[in-house]
Amino acid sequence: MSVLLRCENLTKSYGGTPALKDVNITLESGKIVGLLGPNGSGKTTLIKLINGLLTPTSGSIEVAGFAPGVESKKRVAYLPDNSYLNTWMSVKQIVNYFCDFYEDFRPELAYQMMAKLGISPEVRLKALSKGNKEKVCLILIMSRNALLYVLDEPIAGVDPAARDYIISTILNNYNPEATVLISTHLISDIEKILDEVIFINNGNVVLQKNVDDIREENGKSLDELFREVFRW
């Protein structure tokens, strides 16, 4: 059991406005954790800080034991909410790209998963449907043998059948040494697979708890609790 994410008094302000205030989070290995919160709650800011795309204003953040940098990036697999891939590349080219930069990338696994979807390696990303492009992005991330997977809205904008596929892929890829952090709005689809949930609002962590414990204590599903907690 190792700590894969540790935030201590993490604060990030843009100009004078704080997007994250004194955030304290510890994520242990072997968990699937949901990061839930309304728009503008600081989820994206937290995710960018984890990935080294932003620097903290104060406080500290440690990812897989390293401050965000080259060493942490080797161990983090990030799926942003919008496609960041060069569409002129073919599937094979993007797989080779990932192989080149990530030592932990498993190309056979990637090709296997894509074959099951009927996506040929020669296809250009441009030619794929939106749903298939999202699946390819997920496959690339899941084919990495990372310690921390950060998925930003992996099932938003995707049809229900594709959501099932994505959820199955996440489960199939489960590694007790690693942790998956899923940031999403679509709670009811995803709550069954979560170990823990972090509720975040206005830059503060409102709650971090085991999901079954929440159900036990509140007699409600996560979806219902979310609606209550974040009621306007």
């Binding site: 699937i32 199955s168 489960l171 697979i193």
Partner: peptide, 11 residues
């Protein structure tokens, strides 16, 4: 079982 049932492996 986790994949078939659609639940977390720790569960």
């Amino acid at each position: 079982m986790a994949v078939t049932a659609g639940v977390n492996p720790n569960t």
